[in-house]
Simulated assay, not measured.
Amino acid sequence: MAIQTPNDYLQAVLEQKTVSSSNQTNDYIKELVDEREKVKTILETKYPGASLALHFAGSYAKNTMTLPPSDLDLAAYVQRDETAVGDTLEDIYQNLHDTLAETYNVEKHRSCVRLLSRKDGEEMAASIDVVPGRYINEDSKQDSQCFIYQTEGEKCRLKTDLRAQVRHVRDSGFTNIIKLAKVWKKQNNVSVRTFVLELLIIKILSNAEDVKSSDYAACLRTVWNAFKEDIENISIEDPGNANNDLSGIFDASTKASLKSHASTALTCADIDMWSSILGTVEVKDKAEKRAILESIRVSTPQVAQSRPWARI
């Protein structure tokens, strides 16, 4: 397919810079999935028979992962009455930290244990965030609400629902737009948490009229315009628990960053400088390259130049 329109370019961005149906076997993904199995084996060996489940979370579970992946999120949850891993949430967090620290170089974060690298020198495709937690109800298959430990803040635990968060994003119909927005975030160092960005995009596009999710350029323009013109009036809530306060991660500085970067993006989009927003893409197929050159020659015989959003 020749890159002749903004949507052609954005499709190429999805194929080259995110995990899509065409690159599910990407080496990065294989390595991360393999590493998850290693973590699972370590925990099962340390806590044999414990009702400890290790679930994919974050962008991998939501189908919004970009390439190369920055990290992989794993939820390590125990059943409500399970005590083999620890009596309290803090115990569970600390015990998983100590167990994984035998194999990995680790860091403690607010609600996760981050695996940075393997101590044996074997490379990892990306860091892995292991989030310890405990299910609240006996039947976790029917009710997946849980408490996760927090190392800082007023409360030492946070009530949420991983599956509800994943479903909210994965089934929104806007995962491709979220992927593109994450590429924009990374390319331009936009200061916003991915979780906040996801919630904002879903809310804005769910309320937008006459915007098709398949029209990537129109969707991005709609999102950026909302950031630029109305960011102060947009509210979001945690689909895992509406009572959770998100003001700490959706504050004035985050809103200012979104507004400023969105304004710049719209200016570039208006003059078809999409590669300035999401970076260049490669045309790898020679036949496709010839087709693009021919289309340029026919349409602009006096000045043969490539579209500004494609690099040939």
Rank of each mutant, 00 (worst) to 15 (best):
T254G: 01
S275W: 09
R221A: 12
S276H: 14
A226Y: 06
I271P: 03
N244D: 07
D238K: 09
K259I: 03
M273I: 10
N233R: 06
A256S: 12
I271L: 13
N243F: 14
I249G: 05
S260A: 12
G279H: 05
I234R: 00
V223Y: 03
L258F: 00
G279C: 07
N241Y: 09
A242I: 13
K255F: 01
I236N: 01
M273W: 14
F227R: 02
I231R: 01
A269V: 10
S276Q: 15
S276M: 14
R221C: 12
R221F: 09
A265V: 08
E229D: 15
S276T: 13
G279K: 01
I234L: 02
S276R: 14
N225L: 15
I236M: 03
K228L: 11
A252G: 08
I234F: 01
C219D: 07
T254H: 00
L220M: 15
F250R: 00
K259D: 01
L246P: 01
C268F: 15
C268I: 09
S257Q: 02
I231Q: 04
G279T: 08
L258S: 00
E237V: 14
V223W: 01
F250N: 02
S253A: 14
D272H: 15
E232G: 06
A226C: 11
A256M: 04
T267G: 14
I231D: 01
D238Q: 06
N244H: 07
I249C: 11
S263M: 06
T222F: 08
A242K: 15
L246G: 05
S247Q: 11
C219F: 06
N241I: 09
E232P: 05
S260Q: 06
A252K: 12
S247F: 02
F250K: 02
N244E: 10
D251I: 00
I231Y: 03
A265I: 07
T222N: 10
I231K: 02
L266D: 03
S260C: 05
D270M: 11
N233G: 10
I271T: 15
S263E: 13
W224R: 03
S257V: 02
E229H: 10
L258D: 00
T222Y: 09
T267H: 13
S257G: 04
L266A: 06
